[in-house]
């Protein structure tokens, strides 16, 4: 189904237009991977504490901590990256700059790097994710089998991931150059996949199509499309056809038979007919539109997974069900 079978994906980057539920999908994917027995890290980069909300816990610190246990015992750890702390971390790791790092902070250099020159923020965020992917313990085992990133939205994703190319171009030589190149190597490798979350609506699908084209042009590996919040189709084609033909009298009679009042003109059942047919008409329009959008997604030639709308929003139980659904559909690449 996908090229993922040869090299299992280790870095899953989940993007999507605002409002498509990418944080929920990223969380569900992390749970699904953990359910396969993989040590999984879920990373948040936008400082919104969306992961904490999805898992119904308090705000996450800048620290990898266990956030959920998957069926079968695998666990998901989560990390909300704080760009400021990540920068100090980075300075410390590469340059052993404990004291100098603090002095830089005092000078406002950290502020500069993380807010005023926001490109550097993206460097730190992608750098931290790649560090987690590459990290090994003393015995040489990988710290994580899979890392899932709840990434910036589709409109910004290519620039976000490509920031290190830009930085490498700016620095030309030296440690920043080397670090930037190393990050780009991970991001462009076959171990990475950028997944796009969409709804079956025009704008999100259009943005997905544009996003895929941009990612491909930049040489970044595109993974799958996840169609989220799929609404149920409650009337089939034949029904929609009869509804369109407006068989008012027959419908009024049936409604009356079901005990909803009189079918005569002005009767309770009769008065229901127009609004119900109007709703059916809207439904028909939506089904048609969704079919068109689905065809549009199919032209991308990417593995596509679908998640149903959960009316009340996704609670913790719902999240496990979404994870299960992704796993059954084969998104984790394991046996289904």
């Amino acid at each position: 189904m996908s090229p993922q079978q040869s090299t299992p994906t280790r870095l899953h980057i989940v993007t999507g237009k605002g409002g498509t539920g990418k944080t929920t999908v990223a969380a569900a994917l992390a749970l699904a991977l953990a359910a396969e027995g993989r040590r999984t890290l879920l990373i948040e980069v936008e400082g919104r504490q969306g992961i904490a909300q999805v898992f119904e816990t308090g705000a996450l610190p800048y620290e990898e901590r266990k956030i959920a246990v998957a069926p079968g015992g695998g666990e998901v750890r989560a990390l909300a990256i704080d760009p400021e702390l990540a920068l100090l971390d980075y300075l410390d790791m590469f340059y052993k700059l404990g004291r100098a790092g603090r002095a830089l902070k005092k000078l406002g250099a950290i502020d500069f790097a993380t807010t005023v020159a926001p490109g550097l923020r993206d460097v730190l965020l992608t750098g931290k994710a790649c560090e987690a992917v590459r990290r090994k313990d003393n015995a040489g085992w990988r710290a994580y089998d899979a890392v899932v990133m709840d990434a910036p939205p589709t409109g910004r994703i290519t620039r976000f991931l490509n920031v290190n190319d830009e930085v490498a171009g700016l620095a030309r030589i030296g440690p920043i150059y080397n670090q930037a190149q190393a990050v780009m190597r991970v991001l462009k490798s076959t171990e990475t996949a950028v997944h796009l979350v969409t709804l079956l609506e025009e704008m999100p699908v259009q943005e997905t199509v544009d996003g895929v084209a941009e990612l491909r042009a930049a040489g970044l590996p595109v993974g799958a499309v996840v169609v989220n919040m799929l609404r149920p189709v409650l009337l089939d084609d034949a029904d929609l056809e009869s509804a369109a033909n407006g068989r008012r009298t027959a419908v009024a009679k049936a409604l009356s038979q079901a005990g909803l009042g009189g079918a005569r003109k002005g009767g309770q059942a009769e008065r229901l007919v127009d609004p119900l047919l109007a709703q059916a008409h809207e439904h028909a329009q939506r089904v048609l539109l969704e079919r068109r959008e689905r065809a549009e997604i199919a032209t991308l030639g990417l593995p596509t997974y679908e998640l149903e709308l959960r009316g009340e929003g996704v609670d913790l139980g719902g999240l496990y069900r979404l994870a299960d659904s992704l796993r059954k559909q084969g998104m984790t690449g394991g046996e289904s």
Binding site: P232, L234, L235, D236, A238, D239, S242, A243, R247, A250, V251, K253, A254, L255, Q257, A258, P275, L276, L277, Q279, A280, H283
Partner: peptide, 26 residues
């Protein structure tokens, strides 16, 4: 609705009305 549709003993206008009602409930 699909299961209901299998049941051929239901007259089409009843099936349609039932569909409309389920849509309304949603």
């Amino acid at each position: 609705p699909a299961e209901a549709a299998d049941d051929m003993t239901i007259p089409p206008e009843q099936r349609l009305a039932a569909g409309l009602l389920r849509l309304h409930a949603e």
